[in-house]
Design a protein around this nucleic acid. Structure first.
Lengths: 204, 204
DNA sequence: GTCTATACAGCGATAGAC
DNA sequence: GTCTATCGCTGTATAGAC
C-alpha cells in the first residue's frame, strides 16, 4: 500500500472516531509513524484529504447497482438496496455526522451532497409512481402526501447517521436503519400489502 | 445589559452563523470590542460559555406550556405546541447542527439531550395511546408500527435542523417544520379524520 | 471590572539535507 | 520519498496595572 493511500485510510479512521475538527495533519502523521513533512508532501493540507475521501465515497456509491437493476417490486430487494447505500454512508460517516464542519471547510462538498440527495428524491418519486400504478398504494392518499413521503425518505436517508447517535449503539446500524426506512412505506400501502410487507420485516 | 450577558448573546450569534469550532474567545471579544482578558474574567473558557447557552436553552424550554395544558385533540394546538418547541431549538440551533462538535467538547450535554428526546418519546407515546382510545387511529396499524411512529416523531424532532440544511432556505423554518412534523400523523388516521386534518394543514 | 502584556501550546506550512 | 528543523500564526490562559 502506498503512503498516500495509508494517509487517506488513517484520516478516515480518525475523522470518524474523533471528529474532523480535532484531527490535524500531525495526529495522522503520528499515528502512521511518518513525519508531518512527509504527509505534507502527499497532501498540501487537510482540505485536500477531505476532498479525496469525498471522491472515494462517491466512487463507491457508483459501484452499486442502479435502481432499475433492482427488482423494486420485491420488498427484500428494496431493503437490500437501502442496506447497500447505508453501508457506504456508514464507512464515510464523518461526512454526515460532522456535515456542517466539513462543509465550512470545503463548501463544494455541500453542493454535491445536496445534489446527490435531490437525485435520490427523484428516484423515490419514480418508485412511488410505480407502486401506485401497480395498485399497492391506498387510494385515499393525496398527491401532496405522497410527495411528502418522498421527502421523508430523503430526510431519513440524509440524517440517519445523526439521528442514530440520539438512540444509542446498534450492532449493524446500516442494516437496522435500512429496515427502519422500509417501515415508512407501511401505512401508505393497502391493508393486504401492508401486512405482507410487515411480515417480511419481522422475519428478517 | 451586563458584560456577561453580552458575551453569551454574542457567542450564540457567532456559534450559530460561523460554527462553534471556528469561533474562539478572541472572535467574540473582538466583536464586542472588549479585551480577551475581560472575557476570560467572566468565562474561564469556551466550554463554560457553551454550558451556559445549553442551560439557557433548557430554561426556555421549561417556560413552555406542558403537554397536558395543550388540548391535543385540537390539531391546531398540536401544531402550535410543535412550533413553540421548534422556535427555541432554532434559536439555539448550533446545539443541534453542530451537535457532535458540541458533545465532544462538553460530553455532559450529549447525555442531557438524549434524555430530553427520550422524554419526548414517552410523551408522544402517551399521545398516540390517547388518539387510539379516541378511535382516531386506523385499526389495522400494529403496535410495532405505532411504536415506530413515535420513533419517527423523535427522529424528526431531533434532526430537523440538520435535515433542513439539505433542503434550502425557508422563511420561518420552525413553522414550516412543525407542519411537516404534523403530516407524519396523516396516514395513520382513519380516512375521515385524515381528510379533516389535511384540510386544516392546507388552510394554514 | 476592564485593560495591556505576555507566556505557552498546537497547528499549518516550507526549506533543505539525505 | 522521507526526514529534521524551523517559522509564523492563532488560540488559551494568566499576571499585574488601573
Amino acid at each position: 500500500m502506498t503512503t498516500k493511500q495509508r494517509i487517506v485510510d488513517q484520516a478516515l479512521k480518525q475523522f470518524n472516531t474523533d471528529g474532523v475538527e480535532k484531527i490535524t495533519t500531525r495526529h495522522i502523521a503520528n499515528e502512521l509513524e511518518i513525519s508531518q513533512g512527509n504527509l505534507h508532501y502527499h497532501f498540501p493540507n487537510k482540505e485536500v484529504i477531505i476532498e479525496q475521501l469525498f471522491a472515494d465515497f462517491i466512487g463507491e456509491l457508483e459501484t452499486l447497482k442502479r435502481f432499475p437493476e433492482y427488482n423494486m417490486q420485491d420488498p427484500n430487494e428494496v431493503i437490500g438496496s437501502m442496506t447497500d447505500n447505508f453501508e457506504i454512508m456508514l464507512k464515510y460517516q464523518f461526512l454526515f455526522r460532522d456535515n456542517e464542519v466539513v462543509w465550512r471547510r470545503v463548501p463544494k462538498i455541500k453542493a454535491d451532497v445536496i445534489q446527490l440527495f435531490q437525485s435520490y428524491k427523484l428516484r423515490i418519486m419514480e418508485l412511488i409512481a410505480t407502486y401506485r400504478q401497480s395498485g399497492l398504494i391506498r387510494n385515499e392518499i393525496s398527491d401532496i402526501q405522497l410527495n411528502y413521503l418522498a421527502d421523508q425518505f430523503v430526510f431519513n436517508i440524509s440524517t440517519w447517521l445523526v439521528g442514530s447517535t440520539y438512540v444509542g449503539k446498534i450492532k449493524n446500524p446500516h442494516e437496522f436503519y435500512a429496515k427502519t426506512l422500509f417501515r415508512l412505506w407501511l401505512p401508505y400501502l393497502k391493508v393486504e400489502e401492508m401486512q405482507k410487507w410487515e411480515g417480511i420485516l419481522t422475519k428478517l
